[in-house]
Design a protein around this nucleic acid. Structure first.
Lengths: 242, 242
DNA sequence: CGCCGTCTTGAAGATTCTCAACACCAGTGG
DNA sequence: CCACTGGTGTTGAGAATCTTCAAGACGGCG
């Protein structure tokens, strides 16, 4: 599935109506485009003065490792998502990022970003909104790990990922492509790949959703949402009714 | 224990050297001060157009509830911490906040904040740094919940909290006041109060740390850090060596 | 075909939770 | 002064959840 418009503009467009000047400013963020192979590391925890990116195509995993090798994926970044902005002010990257698929990325420096912000306060606000939204997603993941059990966690994750992909035209209400392996589901949900496998089986047996051949198909969205106790405050566009 | 200088200035001061003009700008953030009783709700998930706050004194819990009553505390806010900034751009609060102790808070609107940012870009940068640091703390909590087991989680949390309190003069290396109940430790660490109790007993039996009468005392900091696999990338001030 | 990475399943074990009972302590009112 | 109370902390036992280890199945690709 290919997004019809530039995913970043599409995503920010739900926050404000982008006028041509705004689109031109966003285009400056996409001036330098690079390609990255699957399994390549974009940056690592502790790196200094890293670049910032926008994902144009492909999937990125942001993660942290413990000393003994345990890995926790913080979040996946998909088309339209920013990457590495937090490192800008911290000056040190607090996490690593790796390419789960072949990627197309736009690259820019903090300096370039500041220039655009100075010229286009509307765009700046929209970018800050996107950052806030990403933070809200991480917070919801925290709740997921802390207070939901395996099956609920997986259900929640499947729905949320679908909602994010739909915003950039990469999902319908009940289906999307998903390049993750079960191990990556495990590492984002704080479980083992084996338990993820058993949880997917339960979802399948209960006719809620299936994951097969890198494709998620949701069979009973209502019950899946109920199981996950999903609510979309954290993803809802600002003007939307309660 | 009372902080000697204003906690916000003290905290931001580790990011940049605050000149008198900066301090004056920060003072504008502390123009309106309110007091809040223990157990009072500052704002709730779903609220619109909420205010922003700086904690001057006392402890706040930011949390989310599931429909069935399970609670996950996202983070505790202490002296010098901002509160409610994420809701500014989302326009809807994605979490609730409650007073764990009697509080002194300064209150301000998004509009006031924008004015100060326009006049004092240095302060704006420092505030964004603080926001990034808070986000890094949440990310580290995510790793804590996803990939550390109970005892390691508790150890990590004790050390991190001590580090944060020390920045605003409310802790020494091995001791601090902590108004939390075991239930709040449970809700921030994704465990039950009973398991927290057993974990504290283990820490005590192994002579690592004790929690008694709302006071944390660390007996063997080195081993505690080792147990937690703690590293302070996410709290380290920007200029500090690797 | 054979190989490698991934998925699947079973069984046993570790971790954490639930339920239930009791201990401790500060405050309150008799 | 003491009994009572409500909130919190402590402990044990059994159950639920999740992990670990081990083995085999599947499927794409050389």
């Amino acid at each position: 599935m290919e997004s019809s418009t530039a995913p970043l503009a599409r995503k920010l467009g739900q926050y404000l109506d982008l006028v041509p000047a705004d689109l031109a400013a966003l285009a400056r963020l996409e001036a330098e485009i690079i390609e990255v192979d699957r399994h390549d590391e974009l940056f690592s925890e502790g790196d200094r003065d890293t670049s910032c990116y926008v994902v144009l195509d492909g999937w990125v995993a942001c993660y942290k490792l413990l000393e003994d090798g345990r890995r926790q994926i913080i979040n996946f970044m998909i088309a339209g998502d920013f990457l590495g902005l937090r490192s800008l002010l911290l000056q040190v990257s607090d996490h690593s990022a790796t390419a789960l698929t072949r990627l197309r990325l736009s690259v820019f420096s903090g300096e370039q970003l500041r220039e655009i912000f100075a010229d286009h306060p509307r765009v700046a606000t929209a970018v800050f909104w996107a950052i806030s939204r990403d933070e809200a997603i991480v917070v919801e993941h925290l709740v997921n790990l802390g207070r939901r059990k395996a099956l609920e966690r997986l259900a929640h994750f499947i729905i949320e990922l679908g909602a994010r992909l739909k915003l950039v035209g990469l999902a319908t209400d009940d289906e999307y492509h998903c390049p993750l392996r079960q191990e990556e589901f495990a590492d984002v949900l704080g479980l083992t790949a084996i338990h993820i496998n058993r949880s997917f089986r339960l979802l399948r047996e209960q006719q809620l959703a299936v994951f097969h051949r890198h494709r998620i198909v949701i069979h009973d969205r209502r019950r899946l949402i109920e199981l996950a106790q999903y609510n979309d405050f954290h993803l809802a566009p600002p003007g939307s009714p309660m």
